[in-house]
Design a protein around this nucleic acid. Structure first.
Lengths: 127, 127
DNA sequence: TTGATTGTGATAGAGAGTTATCACTTGCGT
DNA sequence: ACGCAAGTGATAACTCTCTATCACAATCAA
């Protein structure tokens, strides 16, 4: 049976305290603030466990390491900042995407990715 | 200066004769129909050259090897069949995506991915 | 036709992300 | 408090895609 460890708690806290998808490296860096000695292997191990139990879900972008976010979020899309590479949630989905495929193609689900500049990087670029 | 070889011609023909993005393996298999002995290294080399000269562009999906298609196509999106893994072009783009991001996010471009079943796999699943 | 030089094919190697290994530590039932 | 099973951290190893290497073959100007 699973045990409660400070590393595991720290990793869960990281996801609960963040509203955007995080990759293993980002989780490591956030978790190190509460558990300085935590290692990357522990992060990967616990991410895997959290995915298996359905508490987080993977968010995959082309040519990017897997990110993860809480599984119980409402349907939404993602925005990646082309400057800092961070990924943000974009709430809602008002597009009639299912009907946009040609005849004969049955759409089961879709992904929308927006790319651009996030508020932080916009303000830093404006002196 | 570059030379004309039957391998290079075969690879260019593959892209011109196909209306969906192809990965290196798919290009290899198609090119082998006209040049049986062609190797994967030659495919990668020529794809790289064709990208550098702007004749094809990469089409990247999460956790998938890079695919490539002709660069001069009109703006469109992509559909991946969850059965055969092939990727197809979806013409047009009628969505007001630029306006869907939260305040402060500046959208520069976007990608829409549709996932589902292609006509070939739909008919094969219906006996 | 010749010959420099570019291209090819087979395969080794690089690079990135992720998983496995293993000795040591820690949580927790008794 | 004890003991053992589960967890951790460091790092080796794996997977997958793509690039580099190198001996040999093919192209094309002269």
């Amino acid at each position: 049976m699973p045990r409660r460890t400070e590393q595991r708690d720290a990793i869960r806290d990281v996801f609960e305290d963040t509203d955007r998808p995080l990759n293993a490296q980002e989780v490591l860096e956030s978790a190190q603030e509460s558990v300085p000695g935590i290692g990357i292997a522990t992060v990967y191990r616990n991410i895997k466990a959290l995915v298996d139990e359905g508490w987080i879900v993977p968010v995959n972008l082309p040519n990017e390491p897997s990110r993860y976010e809480l599984a119980d979020l409402a349907h939404h899309h993602h925005f990646q900042c082309t400057t800092c590479q961070r990924v943000f949630d974009v709430p809602g989905c008002t597009h009639g995407l299912a009907s946009s495929a040609p005849d004969g193609f049955e759409v089961e689900h879709h992904e929308v990715m927006l790319y651009g500049t996030c508020p932080d990087c916009t303000s830093e670029a404006t002196p």
